[in-house]
């Protein structure tokens, strides 16, 4: 699915030749890589915050993204009619992001309070198991609701895809490469979210607590910080960010709202967070760029040189394995927590 955009980009490439071919190929890869990196950072940032502070690898993160995609879709499908203008649709989209962020944050906070909290003092294994159980339940609930509405849970929600304004759905020519307006918009949204999270982490008192708690939760407590409350807040915000990623993906024809979106995004999130390193938001951003550009480059290689369609996904995982072997703590992780 993710190959579709680049497929069209490189179909364009094949028509040209020589130096122009190489140059536009490069531009195509850069644009594709940026848009993918933007999506990946959206997908991974909530996971990264939670993993960083609590050491909990939340397997349900992808399912939260999937639910966010459907919720965002509901807002858009209900509010948008054939008449609705492009700008209004854009405003509605940002309202949907705000609404989904709110709902998912509340849901995440409730989840932390009820089922995550009792297992902090157990082996990490149980956190994986528990959140994986949540995946089973959330995916099935989503499937039930989607089927109740007479839709196919396995395939993308076309009605939601159709609510994107025309100027985003259209293709534009940049340096001889055609790119969908939406992909450029994704870069913008990704940059906005990264800026917002970075500001939250560095400019607010709560962000300071989170950065300190990620490094040494016990010391933070001994300085009078209610770390349990911080856990609840961060789990909530992490879930909210998962929802925001979902709303963005709901518009993207390479992804779209569907139940399998959960696992698809979960695996991407894992790769990015682990390559970036535990407890480092900077690492997550760098890793998202790295993985995004790897995906884009390999998609280009597949389109032009190798006839193996699974190439981008396989190389992404091999990069993960390679990084873990060389630097178990990830690119920006703390050495002493690596390997645990």
């Amino acid at each position: 699915m993710s190959a579709l955009g680049a497929a069209l980009v490189s179909a364009d490439l094949l028509l040209q030749g020589g130096v122009v071919d190489l140059f536009s190929g490069l531009v195509g890869v850069v644009l594709d890589g940026l848009s993918k990196a933007a999506l990946f950072v959206l997908i991974a940032s909530g996971l990264s915050l939670i993993f960083g502070l609590m050491g909990v690898l939340n397997f349900a993160h992808g399912s939260l993204t999937m639910i966010g995609a459907y919720l965002g879709g509901v807002v858009m499908v209900v509010a948008v009619t054939g008449e609705t203008g492009g700008l209004t649709r854009l405003v509605l989209f940002f309202l949907a992001i705000a609404a989904v962020f709110g709902v998912m944050t509340a849901f995440g906070a409730a989840m932390e309070r009820t089922i995550i909290r009792p297992i902090y003092d157990r082996a990490p294994l149980f956190q994986i198991l528990l959140t994986f159980g949540v995946v089973l339940v959330l995916d099935e609930v989503a499937r039930i609701v989607v089927e109740l509405r007479g839709m196919q849970p396995q395939s993308d929600w076309q009605a939601a895809l159709g609510t994107a304004p025309d100027f985003l759905a259209a293709w534009y020519e940049i340096a001889g490469v055609s790119i969908r307006g939406l992909y450029l918009f994704e870069v913008l949204v990704g940059a906005l979210v990264v800026t917002a999270i970075a500001a939250f982490l560095t400019r607010t008192r709560y962000g300071l607590y989170i950065r300190a708690g990620s490094e040494d939760a016990e010391m933070a407590q001994a300085l009078g910080i209610d770390i349990r409350q911080a856990f609840t807040v961060v789990f909530g915000v992490g879930a909210g960010l998962a929802g925001v990623a979902g709303v963005m993906l709901m518009w993207d024809p390479r992804y779209g709202a569907s139940v399998p979106l959960g696992v698809e995004t979960l695996l991407i999130g894992f790769i990015v967070v682990i390559i970036g390193g535990l407890g480092s938001f900077k690492g997550t951003v760098v890793a998202a760029l790295l993985v995004g550009f790897t995906d884009a480059t390999m998609t280009w290689v597949f389109q032009n040189h190798v006839s193996f369609p699974g190439l981008p996904e396989m190389v992404m995982f091999l990069v993960l394995v390679g990084v873990l072997v060389v630097r178990p703590q990830g690119l920006f992780g703390l050495a002493e927590v690596g390997g645990h």
């Binding site: 050491g55 690898l57 990490p124 294994l125 994986i128 695996l267 894992f270 790769i271 682990i274 193996f308 369609p309 699974g310 996904e313 396989m314 995982f317 091999l318 993960l320 394995v321 873990l324 072997v325 178990p328 690596g338 390997g339 645990h340």
Partner: peptide
């Protein structure tokens, strides 16, 4: 490769290998 790591990381890297195999077998 995987037993150089422990805990969550071990689980992750084995999952990574399985996904590589999954993608390979699908293609």
């Amino acid at each position: 490769v995987s037993f150089r790591l422990t805990g969550v990381y071990f689980a992750m890297v084995t999952l990574g290998f399985a996904e590589v195999a999954h993608v390979f077998i699908r293609n």
